[in-house]
Design a protein around this nucleic acid. Structure first.
Lengths: 123, 123
DNA sequence: TCCTTGATTCGATATCTGTCAAACTACGGG
DNA sequence: CCCGTAGTTTGACAGATATCGAATCAAGGA
């Protein structure tokens, strides 16, 4: 087991990796963090949901009726996808009179970007 | 349809949204882009895969045997998840002698970070 | 050549997921 | 109070997925 050499004997000197990349590996995710983040990525892992979120973010606030009109799937299906996005913490909904409006939770998007993106600090 | 007012009549002035956020909404994803990105997010949408990627990124290069040892699932299952990550373009594999090593494709991670993160340029 | 170890593929299975039509809930207007 | 429109929930179902054990492939010794 552990095959060969312990991979760069610390990893920092030679290839350097964690600090070259992102919070994803600095430090590596433990099982708990993975289980916390995975459902959020999973929610983005459907073309309809990804585009729904994109439209919501782009417009700031969108009525469900407008979203339904923008896709080739049924209203119940849109409703289902919106629920998934909501339960992943990616959007919020609010009823105003007859209509329901959705907004994006930027905080959640920021968390993901920070996880994946090159560490902003650290020069 | 289109319910009420056209939502901030352009969106830029008042609430401003797209430019405040990320490439996700600037411009909004079309159906094709959504179908291109969704599988990558889907690959990240499993706790085991997310942690696999995290470990690979953190160490720069990892032998499968080390990855198998880090999880409570069987070797075939790890192999399956690595295949999903590979087909999503998130990792690359290379055989050296008896062992197979995986590396992360930083380019793909960068694409996702750019999509989700606050637009780097523009103030 | 045979055997051992590392890794992937195959086959099976239980569960999850995306989708729709139908039923139901929520509002607002006659 | 009844009706129509907007959204969600329910029930059903085909297809995808995560997982395992067994079989298979790959490489390096004895």
């Amino acid at each position: 087991m552990t095959a060969h050499a312990p991979t760069a004997s610390g990893g920092s000197a030679s290839g350097g990796s964690a600090t070259d990349c992102c919070a994803l590996a600095d430090p590596p995710l433990d099982a708990a963090s993975s289980q916390a983040f995975a459902p959020i990525f999973k929610a983005l892992g459907d073309p309809v949901r990804l585009r729904l979120l994109s439209l919501i973010v782009a417009q700031g606030e969108v009525c469900v009726c407008d979203l339904v009109a923008a896709f080739a799937v049924s209203a119940p299906t849109i409703s289902h996808h919106l629920k998934v996005l909501r339960e992943a913490g990616l959007v919020d909904s609010e009823r105003r009179g007859t209509w329901v409006y959705y907004r994006a939770r930027m905080q959640t998007l920021d968390r993901l970007a920070t996880l994946l993106g090159p560490s902003p600090r650290r020069g």
